[in-house]
Simulated scan of single mutants.
Amino acid sequence: MTIQKIDVKYTAVATAENGRDGRVASDDGKLDVVVNPPKEMGGSGAGTNPEQLFAAGYSACFQGALGVVARQEKADISGSTVTAKVGIGSAESGGFGLEVEITASIPNVDKDTAKALVEKAHQVCPYSSATRGNIKVELNVA
C-alpha cells in the first residue's frame, strides 16, 4: 500500500490522560473533555468517549466534503445534515475494531442526485480516505 503524501496546512494536537477513562484536551484549550467508556462497555458513561469524538469529526468533515462536491456540481445542499454512527466491538483478528455508518439528508435534491453527491463526497473527505480499505464504511441517503 502506498502512503499518501500531503502538503500539511494545519496540525491538530490533543493529549489524553488516563486513556479511555480520563481527559482529552487540545493544545489550544478549545477542546477539553472528560472521557469515559460507555455503559455498554462496562464504563460509567459519564463523559464522552473516543467513538463519539470520531463520529463528530467524521460527520463534520464529510459535511464539508459534501459542500465542496455540491459547489462543483452546482447542487443545492442547504439544510443538509450528515450523521456518523461509529460502532466499536471485538475484531475477528483480536482486539477491537470500528465500523462507520454515514447518513446524509439532502432535502433539496432528488434521491439519485443525493446518492451521487454522497459517493463523490466519500472520495473527497479526508476521514474517508483515512478509513478506506481499513474499516467498513456504509453510505446512506435519508
Rank of each mutant, 00 (worst) to 15 (best):
G67Y: 04
G95E: 02
G43L: 08
A46Y: 07
Y127R: 13
T2P: 15
E40Y: 09
G133W: 09
G133T: 12
K111R: 15
K5G: 07
K5W: 06
M41Q: 12
F62T: 06
K30I: 15
L98K: 03
A65Q: 09
T103M: 09
D28W: 09
V109R: 02
A91N: 11
Q4M: 10
S128Y: 04
V141A: 06
L139I: 05
S90A: 15
A91D: 09
V137I: 06
A114I: 07
A84I: 10
S105G: 13
G19P: 05
P50S: 08
S105F: 13
L139C: 02
I102Y: 00
H122E: 04
V86S: 01
G47K: 08
Q63P: 10
A91I: 08
K120Y: 06
S128K: 10
A25V: 14
A104S: 11
L98Y: 06
S129T: 15
A116D: 13
S93R: 10
A46G: 09
K39I: 13
P107K: 05
G87C: 03
K5I: 14
E51W: 00
K111H: 13
E51C: 03
K39C: 05
Q52F: 01
T48N: 00
V8Y: 10
D110L: 03
G95L: 06
V33N: 05
G97F: 03
V13N: 11
G95V: 09
E99F: 11
E119N: 14
D28A: 08
V13L: 11
N134T: 12
T15A: 06
S105Q: 12
S44D: 03
V100A: 06
N140H: 14
E101R: 14
K74R: 13
G94Q: 07
A114F: 06
R132E: 07
F54K: 03
G64Y: 08
R23C: 05
N18D: 13
P107W: 02
T83M: 09
I77K: 00
E17M: 14
G133F: 10
V100N: 04
D28Y: 07
C61N: 04
Q63G: 12
V86C: 01
N140Q: 14
A55D: 01
G97V: 09
A142P: 07
H122A: 07
N134P: 04
S78D: 11
L98A: 02
